[in-house]
Design a protein around this nucleic acid. Sequence first.
DNA 1: TCACATTTAATTGTTCGCAATTGAATGTAC
DNA 2: GTACATTCAATTGCGAACAATTAAATGTGA
Lengths: 152, 152
Amino acid sequence: MPRKLSAVDPLRLDNQICFAVYSATHAFNRVYKPLLDRLGLTYPQYLVMLVLWERDDVPVKDIGEKLFLDSGTLTPLLKRLEAAHLVKRTRSSEDERQVLIALTPQGHALKEKARSVPQSILAASDCSVPELVAMKDEIVALRDRLNAVIGE
Amino acid sequence: MPRKLSAVDPLRLDNQICFAVYSATHAFNRVYKPLLDRLGLTYPQYLVMLVLWERDDVPVKDIGEKLFLDSGTLTPLLKRLEAAHLVKRTRSSEDERQVLIALTPQGHALKEKARSVPQSILAASDCSVPELVAMKDEIVALRDRLNAVIGE
DNA sequence: TCACATTTAATTGTTCGCAATTGAATGTAC
DNA sequence: GTACATTCAATTGCGAACAATTAAATGTGA
């Protein structure tokens, strides 16, 4: 007995892993929204803050490499973070092409308010930590294989 | 011997499954770009066409429910598809609140040109079909759990 | 040294994505 | 059958995301 044709149709929406990933991204965004509203951040801004909380006083390029974003996205985003008094943008004196991004005291302080975010997300995902870690590793591996192809 | 602190820091970028998903979405987008350029479509437009190739003459709302997008996103996107002569937008006579989206002959014909896309993506992902299907199912399950929380 | 390439951010223009609002059509309660 | 609520698409405004270009600073080779 042949399985349903739809189960193997390569153009069927439900068979696309890319759509699974795409729609999961938006689902995450919607879960994050109320949590990040309290911090006054959007999700991409939150990602930039995660990078800076690990290490700040870094050039825009470094942030871009970690987040896979370019200056066309980051420049206006960082200006908004600066307008919110969370970061300071300073042109490097050693290499005047670079703009260094440093946290303000408020930017540092916001980390404390952000500590509760990951566990809220964990609760919403309704999934064990080991399961999530395994999924994350698989998705990162897939992403890296895709990115490898782009470079060709 | 304790494992590295960074391995369990919940605010560390590399520990965030949401960032894995977010960055994988962008990686997919970049792989799709050259393929979809040949069809004259963006990735979200391609998703809409996938929906319509399964069944057309459907209201905007139905497309939105399948793709988790609202009219604020779809209305301008569908107008661009109409300007490209791929779809026709007609207000329903039975319920004048609805706008029905139907494929034009060119819209139908584009499906043939799109058939090669999925296998190019499969090749780029450098992954077996069963592995991809398993990942897709896990991600969809996670997405649905996240979406369930949003409705609360 | 001087021409040339490379690096880095910023800018411009187009397309998503969504919240909030609007306005018209439809459904429901009384 | 008239208020009232609901549904549906469109609109507005803002923040990404990215391609393409620009401009300034730096590096390199002859």
